[in-house]
């Protein structure tokens, strides 16, 4: 719709960036969980432990990247030079909301990935509470 596109053009960053910044870190966390959890049996029996270690920086980088995107959006939301119109101010406020939300979400899921990395570092994948691997 034409209205919608014109709004898009008002904001200096794309919708894609906003949404990736907001939800990217959560996605990185989900992938990290699935990746690490499904590697546990192989890490024990087939020596794939290093792959789990490798996952930590990769997914942290992904989450951090999403946070960086949001930060970029935040900087962009500081507004255009000169006298912004009321409409532009509104748009900037909305953008800042989305950007800050992205920063908060990314920081949180970054921390969750760190917390989930603790077992990888301090535990042996063969430690078994039973015979079930996953």
């Amino acid at each position: 719709m034409s209205t919608r596109q014109s709004i898009d053009q008002q904001t200096p960053v794309s919708q894609f960036t906003i949404w990736v910044g907001l939800l990217g870190a959560a996605g990185a966390w989900a992938l990290h969980l699935v990746y690490s959890y499904s590697l546990v049996p192989a890490a024990c029996t087939a020596g794939m432990g290093p792959l789990m270690y490798l996952g930590i920086p990769v997914f942290l980088l992904l989450a951090g990247g999403a946070g960086y995107l949001s930060w970029r959006v935040y900087e962009a939301s500081q507004g255009p030079d000169g006298e912004p119109s009321d409409d532009e101010l509104e748009a900037m406020k909305r953008l800042r909301f989305m950007a800050l939300s992205g920063v908060v979400m990314s920081a949180f899921f970054f921390m969750v990935i760190i917390a989930q990395s603790v077992p990888i570092i301090v535990q042996d994948p063969c430690e078994a509470a039973g015979s079930i691997r996953i």
């Binding site: 077992p119 535990q123 430690e127």
Partner: peptide, 23 residues
């Protein structure tokens, strides 16, 4: 936790479960 899954696997979920207290 009690079904007998490898402890490292459980710890991932323990970490995530504890982190949910923050929000």
């Amino acid at each position: 936790y009690a079904v007998g899954i490898a402890l490292m696997g459980l710890s991932f979920f323990a970490a995530a479960s504890m982190m949910i207290t923050i929000p």
